[in-house]
């Protein structure tokens, strides 16, 4: 066999071997690896490449690869069971800022300068050290922090707003093809979808992405961006209609002279107002 065929076969073999090994080593974000894991991946890569081009004996290369991939799996299993092993393998997180004060010793320990810390905080959009209550360096080297409570972004809870609960939207059309799975997930079917598309007057082939939200409303993006499409404002419309009815009822109360009828209208107007108050977070927010 000519040399190039051997290299070809070995490369293809190692290509799939590495694919398999990296897969069984678990899902990790490569940019968030602890340094040790990163080194391991490099070792696997270099060994595989060297063996593939024939610099290392095939069998010996495979043995090394097996060790580099199976040992970390074993360590992962062990560290899932024991906190002690976990801390040895993964290292521990380091507190960098506590109660708004920088811990210089800890900073030294992880070889971080003040400038580095400030830069990392700027990455998180924090320019003022004064805003930071607590910051920690994860074992992966990422820095995460908690802002002082008066510097945190406002949430509906802070405003004592009631907001509507939301589930994740389902993508029912992608690239013009319908996903039956997503539709069933929402308790809908193709008929419903076709009906909805007919209402807004577009054909299925023209849809790039369509999503259904918690209230079962359809949001559509078209291939043809020149077609302007009225996106659903049904909830806002519903609120407006109810509000209109409420205003009209209140108007009748003023107009009608018969006392009993007047009271009946006033009662209904009040009920409708209460209802509006209750629906407000779900229809307008």
């Amino acid at each position: 066999m000519p040399v190039w065929t051997i290299i070809l076969l070995r490369s293809v073999f190692f290509f799939f071997l590495v694919l398999f090994l990296v897969r069984i080593m678990g899902k990790r974000n490569p940019s968030r690896l602890i340094p040790f894991k990163f080194t391991l991946y490099v070792m696997i890569g270099v060994t595989a490449a060297l063996t593939a081009v024939g610099a290392v004996n095939l069998f010996l290369g495979v043995v090394a690869l097996a060790v580099f991939s199976l040992l970390p799996i074993g360590l992962d299993l062990l560290s899932a069971r024991s906190k002690f092993v976990h801390d040895i393998v993964n290292g521990r997180e380091t507190v960098l800022v506590k109660q708004g004060k920088v811990m210089e010793e800890n900073l030294n320990q992880v070889r971080l300068t003040g400038e580095d810390l400030l830069r990392e905080l700027r990455y998180k959009n924090v320019f003022n050290l004064n805003d930071v209550e607590f910051a920690i360096m994860e074992a992966t080297g990422d820095i995460n922090m908690v802002l002082k409570s008066d510097k945190k972004p406002v949430t509906p809870k802070d405003l004592e707003w009631k907001v509507s609960p939301q589930t994740e939207p389902q993508t029912v059309i992608l690239d013009g093809s319908v996903s039956n799975e997503a539709l069933t997930e929402m308790g809908l079917n193709r008929n419903w979808l076709e009906q909805q598309l007919e209402t807004i007057g577009i054909s299925l082939e023209n849809v790039f992405i369509a999503q259904v939200d918690t209230t079962g409303e359809l949001y559509v993006d078209l291939f043809d961006d020149t077609v302007s499409l009225a996106q659903p404002k049904v909830r806002e419309m519903l609120y407006a209609n109810l509000e209109k009815a409420q205003a009209e009822l209140s108007g009748f109360v003023l107009e009608i002279e018969d006392q009993e009828t007047k009271e009946a209208f006033a009662g209904n107007a009040q009920r409708l107002e209460d209802l509006l108050e209750k629906l407000r977070p779900h229809l307008l927010r």
Binding site: P165, M186, T214, T215, G216, M237, L242, A245, E248
Partner: peptide, 25 residues
């Protein structure tokens, strides 16, 4: 007229009552 408006609003609420995904909603 007011009644007609209310009835159409009721229809919309009915669809929401059926197709909402959250129990609470």
């Amino acid at each position: 007229q007011t009644l007609a408006g209310l009835k159409s609003a009721q229809g919309t609420i009915r669809t929401y009552a059926l197709q909402s995904q959250e129990e609470e909603l």
